[in-house]
């Protein structure tokens, strides 16, 4: 059971990283961030369900704050440039 949970954690992390690297849109990239953080949470809970609740709750709240700020950045970028396409927006993508 625990091995399966670890496998799911790695799968979610890889899915999130793939979405961050290959995503063409800011919203898709942020969905990747969310999925990667979910993978980390699964890892914590699979290791020690009762003992890790405190850190898991704190991580969920931090994740919500981070995503809220990044979505604010996305809205500000949309107002500035009129698009959320990363190819049109950024010089950091490849």
């Amino acid at each position: 059971m625990t091995a399966l949970a670890y496998g799911v954690a790695v799968a979610l992390l890889v899915l999130g990283l793939a979405s961050i690297v290959a995503g063409r849109n800011v919203v898709k990239t942020l969905i990747g961030v969310e999925l990667a953080s979910k993978g980390v949470l699964v890892n914590f809970v699979a290791t020690d369900p009762a003992g890790s609740q405190g850190i898991v709750v704190i991580l969920i709240v931090i994740d919500a704050v981070v995503v809220a700020v990044l979505l604010g950045v996305a809205v500000a970028a949309y107002r500035q440039y009129g698009t959320l396409d990363l190819d049109a927006l950024g010089r950091l993508t490849w």
């Binding site: 949970a5 969310e34 949470l41 809970v45 699979a46 898991v56 969920i60 994740d63 919500a64």
Partner: peptide, 23 residues
């Protein structure tokens, strides 16, 4: 639901309310 079944009910409530609702 997995958090709840694994024995972390408070983390499950936070995940359902914050991650599934707010985000």
């Amino acid at each position: 639901v997995y958090f709840f079944l694994a024995g972390a009910p408070i983390a499950a409530v936070f995940e359902a309310v914050v991650a599934a609702g707010l985000i």
